[in-house]
Structure formats: structure tokens, C-alpha cells
């Protein structure tokens, strides 16, 4: 709004004549139509922008969960406390982010923004890895659905009205205020699941390598009573064959082949570990622990 001219003395110059009307956008018979279209496009762009932002954060958080999980050394029902605590905080953050975008990706919009939702693949990777470390099994899509629903629900309904338990609190503020509203769900597509599991094989390979190097035993095994404890080598073989046998997903042939190739390499790395263990493992004296000083592996706490 600095719209006046100065004369040669530097004083504001009087306008000759009335102020010209503000420059108008050309109006014609089509303007109203374009204005409607503009509003539609704006809505779409804004929504996409919000989704992309949340997605980027969810991806970063999922990656942090995976890094934390890579500090685990054995497959066990219970994660080490500090790692479980870290996973929980990250998941709580993810939960908040998911809840903000959940309403935007319902129905037709789920696939509309599928490409902006790559974070879900990463999240699946983290969740499948977490599940594997606890149970030594591959989580199914059916098992993932309630976990995803939970994540969204947690952030939408605040955790069980903690202040309400306060004795001094007047009972007037009823704890059950919102009538169980329809909670939007974040659904996973088959691609989210499959590509997440593809990446799981890479994490399993990394886990197998570190845990074998640091503990001298091949991860896996289950209960001590098991006659033939299954190791991660077998699990990798099974996952590898699983993907080899699946028909190539249409539409994403190139991406599929690339992921499959990486999976093949991971399988081979782990089977090499298994071989090394078998052939040289017995040569290691009892209680032998590899030298960790030069390793770039994070220290075990």
C-alpha cells in the first residue's frame, strides 16, 4: 500500500483526478465457472499438501522405530524395556499424525492420495519387523488392520480421561461426552502391505547379521523345548519363496522386480550367515564374543 508518487522535492504528489479503481481481474461469462473450479482445485491441493507433510513425518518416525528395533539382539516376546519405550513414544507420535489425516483419506480419497501416502509402506515395515522380533512370524494384513485402527483411535479419543479420576473434580463434566463417533480408519492397500514386507526382508537380513555377529548364535529358535528350533535362515528362505511364487503385480512391474532382486540378495546374505555358523560355529570356543570395538554397530546397552 505504498501507492503514491513524489515530486522532485520528495513530497507526496497529489493525484490528478480521482483514484483509479483497483485493477480488476477480467470478468466475463466464464469467470464464475472458473471460480468454482478454482475452489475445487484449491481444496484438492491443500488436502494433498497436508497429507504429504504428515506422510513425511510418519516415514521418519517409522524409520526411527526400525533403527531402535535393530538394536534388539534376539527374538523374544518382550522387547528390551528401553527399546519398547522408544517404540511406544514413536508410535504415539505416529498415531497423532495418522489421526490428523485419517478423515482426508476416506473412501474415494484413499487411492487418490495413494502416492502421497508412501509412509504407510514404511509403517508396515516397522510394524511387521516389530511383530517378527516378538513372535518370529509374518504378520498378516488381517492382524495389521486392528493395529492401524488402534493407532488412529488412540489419538482421536484422548487416553481414558485421567483428570476425571480426581476426587475433587465435580462430576458435572461427564466423562462420556462424545457419543462413540464414527472413527475414521486408515486402511492399508495390498501394495502397502506387500512392499512393506519386501522391505522387511532387508531389515531381517540386517538383524540376522548383527545378532549373529554379536551373540554368536543364529536368531530364532522359539521355546527351548522345541526339537528343531527354526532359525531366521529358514524364515528368510520362506519369505523369499513366498515372493518368488507370487504373480508379478500388474501396473508396477518394474518396482516389483527391483524389490524382488533386493530380497533375493538379502536371502543369500542370510544363508551365507547360516553356512558360516554351521561350518565354523563349532570352532568358536564357548563364550566367544566377537571383537566389537571396531564395529560400527551401536553398542548394546
Amino acid at each position: 500500500m505504498s501507492g503514491f508518487k513524489r515530486d522532485w522535492n520528495g513530497n507526496a504528489k497529489k493525484r490528478d483526478g480521482p483514484k483509479p479503481p483497483p485493477k480488476k481481474v477480467v470478468q466475463n461469462q466464464y469467470t464464475p465457472m472458473f471460480e468454482t473450479l478454482r475452489d475445487e482445485l484449491d481444496q484438492h491441493h491443500d488436502r494433498r499438501e497436508r497429507i504429504i507433510k504428515a506422510s513425511r513425518d510418519i516415514t521418519a518416525l517409522s524409520k526411527k522405530i526400525i533403527f531402535a528395533l535393530q538394536r534388539v539382539r534376539k527374538i523374544d516376546k518382550e522387547l528390551p524395556k528401553n527399546i519398547q519405550a522408544e517404540v511406544d513414544t514413536r508410535l504415539a507420535d505416529i498415531s497423532k499424525l495418522l489421526a490428523t489425516i485419517a478423515p482426508e483419506i476416506q473412501g474415494i480419497n484413499r487411492y487418490r492420495y495413494a502416492r502421497s501416502l508412501m509412509c504407510l509402506e514404511e509403517l508396515v515395515e516397522a510394524l511387521t519387523f516389530l511383530h517378527y522380533l516378538k513372535t518370529q512370524t509374518l504378520i498378516t494384513p488381517e492382524q495389521l488392520t486392528p493395529i492401524m485402527d488402534d493407532l488412529v483411535r488412540k489419538a482421536i479419543t484422548p487416553p481414558e480421561d485421567v483428570p476425571m479420576t480426581d476426587v475433587n473434580e465435580p462430576a458435572a463434566t461427564s466423562p462420556e461426552k462424545p457419543e462413540e463417533k464414527e472413527i475414521p480408519k486408515v486402511s492399508l492397500t495390498q501394495d502397502d502391505y506387500l512392499y512393506g514386507v519386501f522391505d522387511l526382508t532387508g531389515e531381517m537380513m540386517r538383524f540376522a547379521t548383527t545378532s549373529t555377529a554379536l551373540t554368536g548364535t543364529m536368531a530364532g529358535g522359539g521355546a527351548p523345548g522345541d526339537e528343531e528350533p527354526r532359525t531366521i535362515v529358514e524364515d528368510m528362505h520362506e519369505l523369499g519363496s513366498f515372493f518368488e511364487m507370487l504373480p508379478v503385480g500388474p501396473g508396477k512391474r518394474f518396482q516389483w522386480e527391483k524389490k524382488l532382486e533386493v530380497t533375493r540378495q538379502s536371502v543369500q546374505k542370510v544363508e551365507r550367515l547360516g553356512y558360516d555358523r554351521t561350518i565354523r560355529g563349532s570352532e568358536r570356543p564357548k563364550g566367544w564374543i566377537p571383537d566389537l570395538s571396531g564395529g560400527d554397530q551401536p553398542e548394546e546397552e
Binding site: V25, V26, T31, F34, E35, R38
Partner: peptide, 13 residues
């Protein structure tokens, strides 16, 4: 020219 003016109303990415 009318359509051109119309398109200028849009916010494009």
C-alpha cells in the same frame, strides 16, 4: 481470450 482470462483465475501447482 475469455477462456485465457478464466484460466488465470486458477491457482495452479
Amino acid at each position: 481470450k475469455d477462456l485465457h482470462a478464466g484460466f488465470q483465475v486458477l491457482n495452479l501447482k
